[in-house]
Design a binder for these strands. Structure first.
Lengths: 188, 188
DNA sequence: TGCTAATATATGATTAATCATATATAGGAC
DNA sequence: GTCCTATATATGATTAATCATATATTAGCA
């Protein structure tokens, strides 16, 4: 149940509402590490509250719908600290593209190249997003030297995200080049 | 529903039983691309059969429990060919370690290094498995030059899997080194 | 006036994946 | 004789994630 712990981490930074989490966090800072659906966020908040790891204060607003502001509890902080120090099994990657390629021998080269190019485009877009994120963090680092420990860790994390994308892109480009030298299905 | 398509791909290679899929494929060749639980395999086979993408022949065995041997149908082959040519959205990676690091500022360096080292160990083991797999495919390539198109694609896929692991390992080693130069939480 | 966008939460339905367990047969080890 | 392993399939339960929709308010625009 890692989403619960992501939310605990975010609530330890500061109190937030479900809406904040969705719009300010999961669409933003943490989005490269963990994506979460709005429905899942609200349901996870309910579960965290029922476990007493967070509490809720309703903030009445007159110009807008009321907000349910969540705060982490001591029990929640203890749980988070424990989780942060626990090793978790490596997650399984399931990439449709790799499966497609694995079974692609029956397709003509042209179709394979097309597939690789579409993937390349999607990955390039993702890397661009990721780099924008990185620069935002780098800018923060410079303007606020006191919080450097946290920011260094954030940069470390984003470094991997970026490198991972770059590895993928390099591989895709090489794969596309390789396809030109691969004898086609119909040309023995 | 990609598992269904992985199974279609495997059944196009040759007819198989659910048990074959689990023990010969998902524990072996395809395991670095897609993992599947035994229960999910059998249920997916039922679903594929009800969609008429595969058919089933019961093979009576006297020394062992009977086997249900599945074959791909023409409709199944058409579906597979279509799926193989369709671009799918990039899968979301959710790596607990990255989340942990993102929120790790409150932990002492020692705890962070321990976390990284445990991850390193797990990744090293995975890379070793992966390299064994690669060598097996390379050996096949040499002994059977006629099937080279398929084998070249398989190598291409395994190349990425290996490079991805290597990127991860390099990053982990660098991260551990970096931790020694990071001012600790309790040492301002 | 009606439409859209932003703010804010909630719930039903479904899919995908995992875990646990049940059943049945045969062969080999001790 | 009993236990374990390999072969083989099936099902119940649960979790995690996604999709679709519902509801309610205010502000701004055409």
């Amino acid at each position: 149940m890692s989403l619960a712990h992501v939310i605990l981490g975010l609530l330890q930074q500061q109190e937030r509402t479900g809406y904040d989490l969705k719009t300010k966090c999961f669409n933003d800072c943490i989005s490269h590490l963990w994506q979460a659906d709005q429905a899942q966020i609200y349901r996870t908040l309910d579960k965290l509250e029922s476990q007493a790891w967070i509490t809720c204060t309703v903030e009445i607003q007159h110009d807008r719908p009321n907000r349910k502001v969540y705060q982490i509890t001591e029990a929640g902080e203890a749980e988070l600290t424990h989780w942060l120090q626990t090793h978790h099994p490596l997650p399984m990657l399931r990439e449709p593209l790799l499966v497609q390629l694995y079974f692609a021998a029956q397709l003509p080269n042209e179709a394979i190249v097309y597939l690789l190019e579409q993937e390349l485009e999607a990955r390039q877009e993702k890397l661009a997003q990721c780099e924008a994120q990185c620069e935002a963090i780098a800018a923060l680092s410079l303007s606020n030297p006191t919080a450097s420990r946290e920011q260094k860790l954030h940069r470390l994390v984003l470094d991997l995200v970026k490198q991972r994308e770059q590895t993928h892109l390099d591989w895709l480009e090489k794969a596309i080049r390789d396809m030109h030298t691969l004898r086609d299905r119909n040309n023995p």
